[in-house]
């Protein structure tokens, strides 16, 4: 029987983590462009860039 209690604990903990992740994603504006990612992942930037590579910092 104790396994059930353990599983309950696990589901609630992972669930809470997922929930916090959701809150974080809303605050970060992840839902503001629901269309973009499906196109951007197809846009592989393998062609030669004409602009010099940008300095990252």
């Amino acid at each position: 029987m104790w396994t059930l209690y353990l599983l309950m604990g696990i589901t609630i903990t992972t669930g809470t983590c997922a929930y916090l992740f959701f809150l974080w994603s809303v605050k970060r504006g992840q839902y503001e462009d629901p269309e973009g990612p499906k196109y951007r992942m197809l846009d592989d930037d393998d062609e030669i860039k004409k602009t010099p590579p940008k300095k990252r910092h």
């Binding site: 629901p34 973009g36 196109y39």
Partner: peptide, 26 residues
């Protein structure tokens, strides 16, 4: 979507532009 892609490319290839990103939804 290709319009967005094109605008981003056209802008980011312009000399002096550091970043250009379009929102697909808005």
């Amino acid at each position: 979507a290709s319009c967005i892609w094109l605008n981003e490319k056209i802008l980011s290839r312009t000399e002096g532009v550091v970043a250009a990103r379009l929102n697909y939804a808005t």
